[in-house]
Simulated assay, not measured.
Amino acid sequence: MTHALEVAGIDKSFGTTKVLRSISFAVESGSTTAIVGPSGCGKTTLLRIIAGFEKPDQGSISLNGRAVAGTGWVPAHRRTVGYVAQDGALFPHANVAANVGFGLPRQARTKLRIAELLEMVSLDESYSSRRPDQLSGGQQQRVALARALARAPELMLLDEPFSALDAGLRVTTRRIVAEVLAKAGITTILVTHDQSEALSFADQVAVMSAGRLAQLGTPREIYDAPIDVPTAEFIGDAVVLPAIVEGNTATCALGEVALSRSTNAAAMSGRARIMLRPEQIEITAGEAGVWGRVVDVEYLGSEALVGIDLDDRGADDVPERVTVRRFGTSKLAVGDRVSIRVLGTAIAYTS
C-alpha cells in the first residue's frame, strides 16, 4: 500500500496550551481524507503543520517517502503541496488569469495553460478577465483550486473551503471540487467542522477531539460504529439510552435490542449505554412495539425529526426520550400517541 502522507506522533503547543497530542495517521495515494472535529480541536493547526506553515514540537511527517518534518525541515514553498484556504485568498485587484497564473512559473503563464486550468474546475476561459469581486463564492473557490492545481501538487490541502457558501452552492461546489481532484488523482485532505460534508466527501475520516485523534476509519465505520458516545453524538444525530447488557442483547426503554458485532459484549456485561441512529427507530401502525407520546416535531423539508417521550420511565421517574427520523411527509403532531420499534442493531458502551 502506497502512502502519500505519513504523520507520526505530532505534538504542538502554543505557549502553555497543548493543541495537538501524539497525532498519527497515514493517507493512501490518490485518496481523500477528511479531518473533522469541533472548533478548537486542533484540526487547522494540524493542516498548517502538514503544509509547512507551522513546525511541530515533536513527531515527523513524510510526503511520498520524503521526510519534510521531524528528521529535517522542508519549508512550505519547497513542498509539493497545494493549499486552498476558507476564503480562497485570491488577490482582490488581480484578475482571474493573474490569480491562476501566480501558481505557475513565469514562462508557463500562457493563455492556453490558464484556460486549461480553468477548464479543470469547470470555468470558461471568459472568466480570465474578471476580478474576484465579479465572481460568486463558489467560483472564487474554484479559481483558488485552479491556482493550487497549477503547481501540480502531490497533496492538496483544503481548509474549510466551502463553509462560507450557502447550502445549495456548497453542495454543488463540493461535488465539482471532488470530481476535479479525483480525475487528477491528487491525494487530498479536507478540514471541516461539517459532519455530513466529511462523510460524503472522503474515503477516510479522522475525528479529532481536544487535540487527539479519537477515531480513524471509513465514513461508514465512523457513522455506524463510533468509538465512544462523544464521537457518536458529534458525527450525527444519536439516540443514547441506559441499558443492561447480557450476551448479545441490551435491555432498555425500547425493550430488547440486538447489539452490533462491533460491540465486545463479553467485556460489556451489566450496565452500559447503547447508541442508535434516529433512522433506526420506526414508528409502527401500533400492532407492536413500545409506546410513547410525541413532544417535538422538527420539520426539515424532505424529512422530520420527531421527539418522543417513552411510557417507560427511567430511574428518576423521568421519561426516556428518543428521536425518530421520518422521511417524506409527516402528519404527526405534538401530543400524538405512537408506537415504535428498533431496526437493526445498537452499539454498546460502558456506562
Rank of each mutant, 00 (worst) to 15 (best):
A85K: 06
T172N: 13
M208Q: 10
Q280D: 05
A97E: 15
E256G: 06
F14A: 02
D57N: 15
V322F: 12
D159K: 15
L5Y: 12
T263C: 11
V239K: 04
P230N: 04
L123V: 10
F53A: 11
N64H: 14
V68S: 11
R170V: 00
L104P: 14
P56I: 00
T32L: 04
L112T: 14
S136F: 12
A94V: 04
S24R: 10
R212W: 01
N248C: 04
L157V: 02
S209L: 13
L181R: 09
A265Q: 09
T2F: 13
H93A: 07
T71I: 04
R170M: 01
A115W: 14
A210T: 06
T251A: 13
V245F: 09
D166M: 13
V338I: 08
Q195I: 00
L149V: 05
T173D: 01
R130L: 14
G247P: 12
R130F: 08
R170K: 11
I235W: 01
T231M: 11
G137F: 08
R337G: 06
S129D: 13
G307T: 03
S339H: 12
M1N: 11
G301T: 03
Q134F: 07
Q141P: 04
A148V: 01
D124E: 14
T231W: 02
A288L: 12
S129K: 13
T323N: 09
L343H: 14
P230W: 02
A202F: 06
I189Q: 03
L310G: 07
A8P: 00
Q204Y: 08
A178R: 15
Q58E: 14
L213W: 04
L241E: 09
E279C: 05
R212G: 14
T44L: 02
E154F: 07
Q204C: 12
Q86W: 01
R106D: 03
G292H: 11
Y299V: 07
T329Y: 13
Q215L: 04
K183E: 15
L5Q: 08
Q141M: 04
S339G: 06
C252P: 10
Q204L: 14
N64S: 13
G82D: 02
E298C: 09
I274N: 09
F53K: 05
F102C: 02
A238M: 12
T218I: 04
A315G: 03
A89D: 00
L118A: 07
H3Y: 15
I227A: 01
A285C: 01
L241P: 06
A238Q: 06
Q86M: 02
E197P: 11
N95E: 03
R131Y: 15
